[in-house]
Design a protein around this nucleic acid. Structure first.
Lengths: 140, 140
DNA sequence: TCTTGATCCTCTAGTGGCTAGAGATTCTAG
DNA sequence: CTAGAATCTCTAGCCACTAGAGGATCAAGA
């Protein structure tokens, strides 16, 4: 192993400055250095970064990830905490999906109704200008 | 009209500091002031802020909103641009929904699989650590 | 051994889209 | 006229990075 930071970045899909940033905020530990002061990483860090990247992609906040990581390091602890973090997160994800789907509907209606001509006939501008009644008698 | 900033905020649902911020970044024009240097707004600003707020709620970025606003000001122009901004945005929204739904599935599987015992039996950490095969032979 | 150029280092500052707070001034209702 | 609510400007903070300057180090080839 003994990977330089660039190689770790390549293998985990986390960018070099981001890895250093994660070290700075204590999300990953400071690794050993070469004589010339360069970081060298091992298996552990690949796993840990993959964990972090995946969790970030799933929308977990850094503080949650920190908790999860801490928990994963004392396997004798109860997983009740991890479970409830995940449940809270699931609720949040459901809320987001709901909101995005409503938004999706509105957006595609906007697009459908666009007159494809001049701005003055375009519902996109119109709809955005008027929240209360998003697609009704307004052309006049 | 001649509304003070707080009243404008109340009527548009955009917070006072945010209105000032929008002025600062040039999203809305600097309004006339009273002798005592306080901002006073009219109809125009109510409309414009409603437009902005609605577009932000729909997830449009400020730069996009800027373009849309500019377009709305020359009604003889083509709405092709507005249309394509909205379409690009719709695609982005679709991507987000997709990813959130994948996440949803993973989260609920994680929760189902959590043995409610010790961390070492809990898949939450595990599933997040390993993207490729999210729920297979890994307990060992 | 030397050189080259890719990679690495630290540090500061910037991003987006606000939000919070200090400390001073102005407005308005009673 | 006065009290207190609202306003003003300004700076700094938030999150999770990202960019760039200016310099050091590493690995491979000649």
């Amino acid at each position: 192993m003994n990977l330089p930071i660039g190689e770790l970045a390549r293998r985990t899909g986390v960018k070099v400055p981001t890895i250093r940033f994660y070290e700075q905020i204590g999300l990953i530990a400071a690794p050993p250095r070469t004589e010339g002061n360069q970081r060298r990483y091992g298996r552990t860090e690949i796993d840990r970064l993959n964990f972090i990247r995946h969790a970030r992609e799933l929308g977990f906040e850094v503080d949650h990830i920190r908790e999860l990581l801490a928990m994963s390091q004392e396997p004798q602890a109860s997983c009740h905490q991890a479970d409830s973090i995940a449940k809270a997160h699931l609720r949040e994800v459901d809320r987001r999906i709901e909101r995005l789907q409503a938004l999706r509907g509105e957006l595609s209606r906007m697009i459908d109704e666009c007159g494809h001509g001049r701005i003055c006939d375009c519902r996109i501008i119109e709809v955005l200008a008027d929240h209360k009644q998003c697609a009704s008698e307004h052309v006049a």
